[in-house]
Amino acid sequence: MRIAITGSTGLIGTALVRSLRADGHEVVRLVRREPRARDEVAWDPRRQWVDGAGLVGCEAVVHLAGAGIGDHRWSAAYKKELRDSRVLGTAAIAEAVTALDTPPRVLVSGSAIGFYGDTGDRTVDESAPPGHDFLAGLSQEWEEAAGAAVEAGVRTVFVRTGVVLAREGGACGKLLPLFRAGLGGRLGDGRQYWSFISLHDHIAALRHLLADAALSGPVNLTAPRPATNREVTAALGRVLHRPTPLPAPAPALRLVLGEMAGTVLSSQRVAPRRLLDSGFTFAHPDIESAVRAALGHS
């Protein structure tokens, strides 16, 4: 299968490219610069432009590109960057896909469980309404930007991703140095739910979505057993054999992180109902096994 991927140099994109190529698939990587290799195709999300010739013959497109949620403090300028990189980029991909004489069979487009806002202790699945904070509004716009592909009849899947656990990056990658130094601890009161997924399971789920022609619309990519921040902290401490004595109080997090602290302190108890109903099996369904897999201890 010939598959085009945006965000191919990120944590998830890099692992997906490696997995697909290992199984003999042809991968085309969309890049925001002059292409330097035969497998690269130029695109410019800000200008909403894609070199459509490079997508010819693709049976699937996986759109993962977007500025990192936790890369910077949420100034007005960076919130605009977060929005533009997702909404403009998704619209560009959707329009490029529909402009092809033979569109791909499926577009798998990035989204996030931020769609649901703070759910507290309440478990939500894909049928739940959107939340009301910045990330919820951003996620709605992000998904709506793929409207051209949906209207053209391209099977479009929105992957609402949770906290991806991996040694190489993401939230886990940022926490590991602190925990290895014995400086890890819960964030806030630690009772907030973190709906996580191991990188291994995330890649397996993406491939499942590419293959299962019955799936379209939103699909939660989270493990079936969400964990509280206290439980995540305890699991990291156990696997690394380090104490976790230093909690980060909520006021301190708000002082350091600003509005973004709400993401760290909010609770999202998300169930991957559609993924489970489709027959997908998780290799790492609980926090202990996911942390061990992320750290190479499984």
Score class of each variant (00 low, 15 high):
Val124Arg: 02
His63Pro: 04
Asp84Met: 14
Cys58Ile: 10
Pro103Ser: 01
Ala42Gly: 11
Gly120Ile: 01
Ala149Ile: 06
Leu135Ile: 09
Leu135Met: 11
Glu141Thr: 11
Arg33His: 07
Ala148Phe: 03
Ala92Met: 06
Ala65Met: 06
Thr102Gly: 14
Thr119Glu: 09
Gln48Met: 08
Gly120Arg: 05
Thr156Phe: 07
Gly131Ser: 06
Arg155Gly: 02
Leu55Ser: 02
Phe134Gly: 03
Thr102Leu: 15
Gly24Ile: 00
Val106Ile: 15
His25Pro: 02
Ala112Trp: 06
Glu34Ala: 13
Leu100Arg: 06
Ala91Arg: 14
Val27Lys: 01
Pro103Phe: 07
Arg83Trp: 09
Phe158Pro: 00
Asp121Ser: 12
Ala145Ile: 05
Glu126Ala: 08
Ala96Asp: 13
Arg122Val: 13
Gly54Trp: 01
Thr98Ile: 11
Gly54Lys: 02
Ala96Glu: 09
Ala112His: 04
Gly147Lys: 10
Trp43Met: 02
Val56Gln: 09
Gln48Lys: 12
Val124Tyr: 06
Thr102Arg: 15
Ala148Met: 13
Asp121Asn: 12
Leu107Phe: 11
Ala42Glu: 11
Ala76Ile: 09
Val27Gly: 00
Gly66Val: 07
Val61Leu: 08
Leu55Glu: 03
Glu151Ala: 12
Val150Ser: 12
His25Asn: 01
Gly120His: 07
Ala136Asn: 00
His63Glu: 06
Ala53Thr: 08
Ser75Arg: 06
Gly54His: 03
Arg47Val: 06
Lys80Trp: 13
Leu82His: 01
Arg83Ala: 12
Val61Ile: 06
His132Lys: 15
Val87Thr: 05
Ala136Leu: 08
Leu30Lys: 01
Gly153Tyr: 03
Leu64Ala: 00
Leu107Gly: 03
Val106Gln: 10
Asp39Ala: 10
Thr90His: 09
Pro35Ile: 03
Phe115Asp: 00
Tyr116Val: 04
Tyr116Lys: 00
Gly57Phe: 07
Gly120Phe: 11
Ala76Ser: 12
Asp71Lys: 13
Asp121Gly: 09
Asp125Met: 06
Ala92Gln: 04
Ile69His: 11
Gly52Ile: 14
Arg32His: 10
Pro130Lys: 13
Ile113Tyr: 11
Phe158His: 02
Ala99Met: 15
Leu100Gln: 03
Ala60Tyr: 03
Ala112Cys: 01
Leu30His: 02
Leu100Ile: 07
Gly70Leu: 15
Ala145His: 11
Arg32Thr: 08
Ala91Pro: 10
Thr102Ser: 09
Arg46His: 14
Gly89Ile: 05
Arg33Pro: 04
Glu126Cys: 06
Asp51Val: 04
Gly68Gln: 04
His132Phe: 15
Glu126Phe: 14
Ser139Ile: 10
Ala149Lys: 03
Ala37Gln: 08
Ser127Gly: 11
Asp121Trp: 08
Arg32Gly: 03
Ser75Val: 06
Leu100Tyr: 05
Leu138Ile: 04
Asp121Ala: 14
Ala136Ile: 05
Val124Ala: 07
Thr123Asp: 14
Pro104Lys: 12
Gly52Glu: 14
Ala99Glu: 04
Ser139Phe: 14
Ala37Met: 06
Lys80Asp: 07
Leu30Ala: 02
Ser85Val: 07
Arg105Ser: 13
